[in-house]
Design a protein around this nucleic acid. Structure first.
Lengths: 136, 136
DNA sequence: CGCTTACTGGGAATGATTCTCATGAGCGAT
DNA sequence: ATCGCTCATGAGAATCATTCCCAGTAAGCG
């Protein structure tokens, strides 16, 4: 399942992800690459995005429509846990520390007797940049 | 879009939701109702579940596969904001207060200059009951 | 009781993701 | 540099949840 060999397709998928600082869907990435004239298959894009996510070098969130979106988060902090503040207008995302949330989650789980805790925390808003473009 | 008329189908969908204290997918509810001998269409199940969610009497979360799951949360606290601690084994869910998270979210958004904040917070774990059934 | 209008449900359409499998390309061995 | 063994690739088909379409049905007001 994990892609291990260094191939041209792996590179261009990684590059396409890195080229944006927001979350992008597999379909988006595929469309971009094709538009840029690259020969690549949709299956391959899915494979690599999922592989990146599994390795921890990309983060995944599911948008409201259930479409999975990916964001390149660098090899640097693999394994570190963080959350995102995502602009619902331009897709740009900030990495944020979740200290207080982690503590609250652990506490809550303990109170109810739950173990093997995991959680999803995503913040959505409109960034300062997009605010000016938007009405009201 | 919102269903306003009192129909038999609306009742049985609501009952099917209330019959469980965990999150259930539209497909699940549909299968249950059909298995129980009710004549109902899949479209209708989707319509009512979404309508309940819009009215705030049901909560929605998207599981890992992007499948939407619904839970009946009563007419009582419509409009009140709460989160869930869900057992990933039996599906049972507890409603939890998110006070600290709300504050952290607001604070974080302000620091980055984001407005119109919204967030998704879900906790997953294994409940005390299921813990005994599981290995390790 | 009859009429209007909203609800219903079967099936087709959509859209994302996964599967299949023949072809093509890494890369270690020679 | 070449060979060969695998694993990666990609086109299209398959799958699956969800939505759309629309003719038939029923709610509830008058």
């Amino acid at each position: 399942m994990a892609v291990t060999r260094a191939t041209a397709q792996q590179s261009i998928v990684r590059d396409a992800l890195q080229a944006h600082d927001g979350f992008r869907s597999a379909q988006d990435v595929f469309a971009d690459l094709r538009a840029a004239g690259h020969r690549i298959g949709l299956s391959t894009v899915y494979r690599h995005l999922q592989s990146f996510a599994a390795q921890g070098i990309a983060d995944v969130i599911h948008d409201g429509d259930g479409e999975a979106t990916y964001r390149y988060c660098g090899e640097s902090h693999v394994g570190e846990h963080h959350h995102h503040l995502v602009c619902r207008h331009c897709g740009r995302a900030e990495e944020v520390e979740g200290g207080p949330v982690e503590r609250w989650a652990a506490q809550t789980a303990r109170r109810f007797g739950y173990v093997e805790l995991d959680h999803t925390v995503e913040l959505f808003g409109v960034c300062g940049n997009c605010r000016s473009y938007l009405p009201s």
